[in-house]
Design a protein around this nucleic acid. Structure first.
Lengths: 186, 186
DNA sequence: ATAGACATGTAAGGGGTTACATGATTTA
DNA sequence: TAAATCATGTAACCCCTTACATGTCTAT
């Protein structure tokens, strides 16, 4: 089983969810370390159920059609924790910005600076987004809506998201400084 | 054309290289933002040549068989710079460590702490590696072995590599602190 | 002579993204 | 009544990784 499947299992361990919810979770809360679309989620859920890692309950949708809400079984939790207790593989990053940055020294003056400014704004925005999620998590924990296990797991990923974006914003600033200093005409 | 191909073009613009060199460059200097193996590199090089983006010169290998050394043409440089001047897509990260961290609150005490220690060591090591590359780059620039364009491009990626690893090490420390405070028995 | 680095490629298989397909419910 | 959100799935294609295939040169 791949990382992505374990991510789903972990999200279900934090709280029972439907495939639709899982997809939203990937989009809104996990996209900075793992992604998935419907075509990964639904087949995975079916497989989990065949293997006895999850069970589902059909619930009438509050605002929409019927939902299949999945929860992890004891077996599923065991599989998850056995995997989580092993050392992790190196993380993989594909960053187009850095590939473009390889050529920033060849671009006419100012162009790269503009691109860095845009990148800075996008990362600053993401930073604010994760900070918002963090406030939401703390609130939900205080109101007793979130278990200690789920709180710790989610907080860890949000801390990383925030740290990563702060670090990226800093890079944008330092990169701009370097380009200003190294400008062709300077 | 995809990001990975432009990365190759940029590396060739910094300095002419063979497919073998390109592969080493991906492994040693670009793996923190873009990866590629032989089976991407050689077909891409052949395609670049068909499109007139690069030309190659066959050079007797100094310690080994013959090498095909590729350089970018004017057309290749144009294609590269045209692409580099466009805003970049969001970076994609696949971080198994964070997926495992989702379950750290469910792991028996101490286990997660041990995993974080191991992760910290690996990232600290990478940090030292990038710092070494940075020293090498500065030396090579001072000795006039590297053009200003190549220096700026490479420096930008190394700055990012260093910042990203520093930030990851910090996360490992903060995560450990959180787990110590939130331990089941605490 | 054998291991290891140098060097260039091809083939196959699996996983993941994108697009497709369908339908219910609510809100404007 | 149209758009947006809710909700569950399938199919096809592409890319990427892994493995395969071959050969040279140097150093031990």
């Amino acid at each position: 089983m791949k990382m992505r499947e374990y991510a789903m299992l972990a999200a279900l361990a934090h709280r029972p969810r439907s495939g639709y919810d899982l997809n939203k979770w990937f989009d809104r809360s996990a996209s900075h370390f793992c992604t998935a679309g419907y075509s990964s989620v639904y087949p995975a859920l079916a497989m989990f159920e065949r293997e006895g890692l999850v069970v589902h309950e059909t619930v009438p949708g509050e605002r929409g059609p019927e939902r299949k809400v999945y929860s992890v079984t004891g077996k599923g939790r065991e599989a998850l924790l056995g995997w989580a207790a092993e050392p992790a593989a190196d993380s993989e990053v594909r960053d187009e910005q850095l590939v473009k940055a390889l050529s920033y020294g060849m671009l006419p003056g100012g162009v790269a600076l503009g691109l860095l400014e845009g990148a800075r704004a996008r990362h600053q925005e993401k930073l604010a987004y994760y900070e918002g999620l963090m406030r939401g998590l703390e609130g939900s924990r205080e109101r007793g809506e979130t278990s200690r296990e789920a709180y710790v797991g989610t907080k860890l990923t949000l801390m990383r998201g925030i740290g990563a974006e702060e670090s990226y914003v800093r890079w944008c600033d330092e990169a701009a400084k370097l380009l200003e200093g190294a400008a062709v005409g300077a």
